[in-house]
């Protein structure tokens, strides 16, 4: 008897389900697929695939080095495909004001104390802690990550393009 096989999607291989309407509007379900979204995104575009009032989850194509970001609140990143590093700095002069929602993009690597780094692969989740700056570095094939965060200036909402209608 063969062992059960767990199916993970990826940028290269994914299947998409969908909404079959009986008496409703498919838009109510904002149905999308993160691999499809990432496949059509530029590197490190933060495309919202879920929105719950001020909170969002963003699908991000990880390819090469990202800009440096800073966050005033905790965020979390879950890798859905590929492998990448996250490098952290505690900025000497934080740019994200207290209460600022969502990540902000920095002009370059901030001056500050190096906090360390993590290497994460599919299924791994990493903290992007409040008050830190961070950069993603994806060296191999493009990957896909989900970021749990708050709607911010960098969040891209293009629901009509990504959702079943």
């Amino acid at each position: 008897m063969s062992s059960p096989q767990t199916y993970f999607g990826s940028l290269k291989h994914y299947e998409k389900g969908g909404v079959t309407i009986i008496n409703d509007d498919p838009k109510n379900y904002a149905f999308s697929n993160i691999f499809e979204v990432a496949a059509k995104s530029k590197p490190y575009e933060k495309v919202a695939v879920g929105k719950n009032l001020k909170y969002v989850i963003e699908a991000v194509r990880a390819e090469g080095d990202s800009p440096w970001y800073e966050t005033a609140h905790d965020e979390a990143v879950l890798v859905m495909d590929g492998e990448l590093e996250v490098h952290y700095v505690k900025p000497d002069a934080p740019q994200a004001a207290a209460g600022k929602q969502g990540a902000i993009k920095l002009a370059g690597e901030p001056k500050g104390k190096k906090m360390g780094w993590v290497k994460i692969r599919r299924g791994h989740e990493a903290l992007l802690p409040a008050g830190s700056a961070y950069q993603f570095r994806a060296k191999g094939d493009p990957g896909v990550m989900l970021i749990q965060t708050i709607l911010g200036d960098l969040t891209i909402e293009r629901w009509a393009d990504i959702c079943q209608k």
Binding site: Y14, K16, Y29, N33
Partner: peptide, 16 residues
Amino acid sequence: PRAKVVMKAGDVAAMP
């Protein structure tokens, strides 16, 4: 009944 939603790996959907 209002809908059926089939979700495969990587799919995201809201529950109203």
